[in-house]
């Protein structure tokens, strides 16, 4: 069981608990505003873009080339950007904080 903290664009903090599946799915199932996950998590749409709290970057792990290529063409991406459909929930993520990124 991992506690995941999402911060929406209007600065509301939502804490959810999850065991499995992706961070996108957890957010979408619980209606976290701004995480739409339009493509269902296949790395096509970037509607699951978040900025990971800089201190938690190692928890999130490394992005794949596919993910990096998509983020590279996103005007709101920075070094803390991730597509949260590409991060699977595990105990290691406990306490991670993700800020919903602005949409292009």
């Amino acid at each position: 069981m991992a506690k995941i903290n999402y911060v929406t664009l209007d600065n509301k903090k939502i804490t959810l608990e999850g065991n499995s599946g992706s961070l996108m799915k957890l957010a979408k199932d619980n209606g976290v505003k701004g995480i739409d996950g339009e493509c269902g998590g296949v790395c096509s749409c970037a509607t699951c873009h978040v900025h990971v709290n800089p201190e938690h970057m190692d928890k999130a792990g490394e992005a794949s080339e596919f993910e990096k290529d998509l983020l590279e063409l996103n005007d709101h991406s920075n070094e803390y950007s991730r597509l949260c459909c590409q991060i699977q929930i595990s105990d290691d993520l406990d306490g991670i904080e993700l800020k919903v990124a602005e949409r292009d």
Partner: peptide, 24 residues
Amino acid sequence: DRKINPHVGFGFGVHNCLGATHAR
């Protein structure tokens, strides 16, 4: 069940398909 599928069937960038939610 293709897991990574960065297709551009609904376009890409600012003009990405407005009707995609309806179509999906």
